[in-house]
């Protein structure tokens, strides 16, 4: 391992595909928070999980460790970072584009939360989500929970196609 360690480690860890959303990488999702290399070729990677209950978490950690070992790093440590918590704001522009290309409407902006209680807002219109297939804005939410923990089910009234929407959290 040479002096190019940190950039290489960042590229390798960030380049691992997400097991639930394989069209995007962990780097594009904003899950890689940091890498630290030592002179002996070891590396520590800091990963921020998306959801506490994400069933893919152990698999993600294993994938990252395997990729780094394959790139010549040893020993490899993957450290979990819960704070500051991951939000969809961490997803990069490239990640959002790839999600849309794969038929998953990317999350919209998330209102910043102050320190106070989260208000319960009933009957609020969901912010418009553009159909990732035809671009139409006449869309509606079918279900708040989709096939995975992070997605909701939507439908486009223009092209009649259902699509998934990565919920903004």
């Amino acid at each position: 391992m040479t002096g190019a360690g940190p950039e290489l480690a960042w590229r390798v860890a960030g380049g691992v595909a997400d097991p639930e959303l394989p069209m995007v990488t962990l780097g594009e999702l904003g899950m890689v928070r940091g890498v630290e290399c030592d002179a002996a070729g070891g590396v520590v990677v800091r990963l921020a999980p998306t959801y506490a209950g994400c069933p893919a978490l152990a698999e993600i950690r294993a994938d990252v460790a395997a990729a780094l070992r394959a790139a010549g790093f040893a020993p490899v440590r993957v450290v979990t970072v819960w704070s500051p918590p991951w939000t969809t704001e961490w997803i990069s522009a490239a990640g959002r584009r790839k999600l849309a290309d794969a038929g998953i409407a990317p999350p919209g902006p998330v209102p910043a939360r102050g320190g106070g209680p989260v208000p319960l807002v009933l009957g609020a219109r969901r912010p418009a989500v553009a159909c990732p297939r035809c671009g139409g804005r006449e869309t509606e939410e079918v279900s708040r929970c989709g096939a995975s923990l992070c997605t909701a089910l939507w439908r486009c009234r223009a092209c009649r196609e259902p699509f998934e929407h990565l919920r903004g959290v």
């Binding site: 989260v118 319960l120 807002v121 959290v169």
Partner: peptide, 18 residues
Amino acid sequence: AVAERGVAEVAYHRLFAA
């Protein structure tokens, strides 16, 4: 950290239930 992450999740549960 668990609580901070949990707030976003449970606020969503509350909205779904409500």
